[in-house]
Write a protein that binds this DNA or RNA. Structure first.
Lengths: 228, 228
DNA sequence: TAATTTGGTGAACAGTGTTCACTTTCTGAA
DNA sequence: TTCAGAAAGTGAACACTGTTCACCAAATTA
């Protein structure tokens, strides 16, 4: 048995790739509702039971879709966090990038926080060591470092625990991401008629989140001006 | 036809009540996964098709469960908001109450933000007038008033738009509620061994949210001390 | 070439939500 | 009180679903 990719292995990867490609296509547009094994099989011209030679279950297949989605989310936020820009911009960009990426694939993001039956994902007994290795865990690590950097720069309140603060930032980002994937016109829900764009509101939210972390003397008014 | 409740009407309400009671029982513990029409029919000793004489569809039935849940959430947050307590306490309590109530019925809360297939609920073309009449909309109104009160007291930054601020607070609350219903040990996910209780972390989060709203001069360090 | 693993299939199982023709029960008016 | 009509309830069926399993053919290995 060689370490090279045998023709059989290459063929296998090809079929497997076709499956997740078709799954990605239908999942991105119709979500879990439109993704049935039989339909997937029809799209790739195989029998339904063939899929079970490549994936143990439908859930396993969808888990892979979520995984690649979170990898992109991680990579994007990671890139932002170490970009060449002032801290205040980078910090806010972490939050906005997270939310924008979630909104690009609402079904993926929603599914990542609920299993097939819409029930809460119970991640019982998961400890820190296990969590830190997951994509979610590494994205969280980026946030912790960002809080630490802000504290060392004197911008963020040094009294705040970086881990708890990062969790709070994550929760705040997650909340807006979820609300906006579920109600696309959420920012525009106003009694007045002046429109507020999605991106403008995301910026506003990111700003408020960061004001909460700033040192008592450092808090400034948001540079928020509704555009377009 | 009288306005009184005829015996037939009373009987009908009784059966209907038995259905939602059974549905509530199984939904609260097992969520949408365990709730099937056939099982429900078995529990109330009727045939499955009988249920369709009372509810147009399974979704309609579940919508009612969500509705009563949000009514309780609304009533709780509403009570807190006009309680006899200092503003800083009431304000934070709105956030913590929201999160704690969500955690009491994780399946209800999760379902309220995703349809049966786990796909995002698309509330397209919903305008403010319609939104303001829903339970979500009225709970949101409570938040807006709270922001306004904080501004008139000089505690919150008067430059902030009350509606956008209330949305941000809602998003932040929703985010933690969702994260905690999905990962019960979220607050305890720490590299260190010192435990942080759920309630302690919720308080910490609420505090950060409020720091973000405070006037530049008013920001104080959080009075957060990990208890128990 | 022979043996064995792998890839692929169709039929079936146990579920699901929902519909529909049908019967039974109850109700409101003549 | 009788009787038409509505309401309540039923069982069988439809069209799905994820999943399994015996079976078959093709590719790989010995």
């Amino acid at each position: 048995m060689s370490l090279e990719a045998t023709p059989a292995e290459r063929r296998r990867l090809k079929v497997r790739g076709a499956i997740i490609e078709a799954a990605e296509r239908v999942f991105a547009t119709e979500g879990e509702a439109g993704l049935s094994i039989r339909r997937l099989a029809e799209e790739i011209d195989y029998s339904p039971s063939a899929i079970y030679k490549y994936f143990g279950s439908k859930e396993e297949l969808i888990d892979e879709l979520k995984e690649v989605f979170f990898e992109r989310l991680l990579s994007r936020v990671g890139k932002i966090s170490c970009a060449d820009a002032p801290f205040s911009q980078r910090g806010r960009a972490c939050v906005t990038t997270y939310i924008v990426t979630a909104m690009e694939r609402p079904h993926h993001y929603a599914a990542a926080f609920s299993n097939a039956q819409g029930a809460p994902v119970q991640v019982q007994s998961e400890d820190w060591a296990a969590f830190a290795k997951t994509n979610k865990g590494r994205a969280f690590g980026v946030l912790v470092n960002m809080v630490r950097e802000g504290q060392s720069l004197g911008v963020f309140d040094p009294e705040l625990d970086p881990y708890l603060s990062a969790k709070s930032v994550w929760a705040a980002s997650h909340g807006l991401a979820q609300l906006m994937t579920h109600m696309p016109n959420f920012p525009a829900l106003l009694p007045t008629d002046e429109p507020v764009s999605a991106s403008a509101f995301i910026a506003f939210h990111a700003d408020l989140v960061f004001r909460g972390l700033q040192s008592p003397g450092e808090v400034r008014h948001p540079d928020f001006t509704p555009e377009d």
